[in-house]
Design a protein around this nucleic acid. Structure first.
Lengths: 106, 106
DNA sequence: GTCGTATTTGGTAAAATAGCCAAATAGTAT
DNA sequence: ATACTATTTGGCTATTTTACCAAATACGAC
């Protein structure tokens, strides 16, 4: 792993890491349905306004979402929607975990 | 977000989180080419044997890899290979980041 | 059995993360 | 201007993560 390769994997891992939190992942998937402002998320999530805002900042810094201020509200939307394609396989991992558990029961 | 949905997102985020570390992501991608034992990874990564072993444990607990002991060695391989399909989009995010930086330069 | 190699486990310290609160900022309305 | 709402920022603490070292374990060779 040379210097360039290391930097590449750090960058790629940072994207996955940003999605590696339940609240952030949920918000990203919600944004697949369309943009939302911070206050809408706050209403649906049992967390402080500042916590939600910081999670969105992390997604933004990872390049996954972008924001736009309109009036009093800041609207977030997916910048690279294909991110959620990956979820099919993540669910396949979960299914595989379930299968392994079943096998243990036998 | 009800109780079940919350559990689902925690499970999905855990998978992404496991891949959200440069060393682990690199190892997972290497395994796409075929199985490897821990000592092979140790030779290629500048990290302690125990560090590498623990990273592999995290991938295993996430359901991404599985291990098999043969003689003195423990061989790891991808359990759900599609995981790496997701990487195309992660790279698209990186490309989008680059584009945004270029736009700033203008 | 002992020896040597591969791997995991336990402990520990430093760094990163998460979430809350309070304060600051930005924008709208009156 | 003041008042009100939406959002971000700074500060703080508790928790988690990371990576190293040393010790324990597992296995094959002799």
């Amino acid at each position: 792993m040379d210097r360039n390769e290391k930097a590449l994997y750090e960058a790629k891992a940072a994207v996955l890491k940003a999605l590696g939190h339940p609240t952030r992942l949920w918000m990203a998937e919600q944004l697949a349905k369309g943009e939302r402002c911070v206050c809408e998320f706050v209403r649906e999530i049992d967390a402080d306004f500042s916590t939600v805002s910081k999670h969105l900042l992390i997604l933004k810094q990872a390049g996954i979402v972008e924001d736009e201020k309109r009036g009093l509200n800041v609207y977030y939307k997916l910048k690279v929607p294909c991110i959620l394609n990956s979820m099919n396989c993540v669910e396949a991992v979960l299914a595989s975990q379930l299968q392994s558990q079943k096998d243990l029961m036998k």
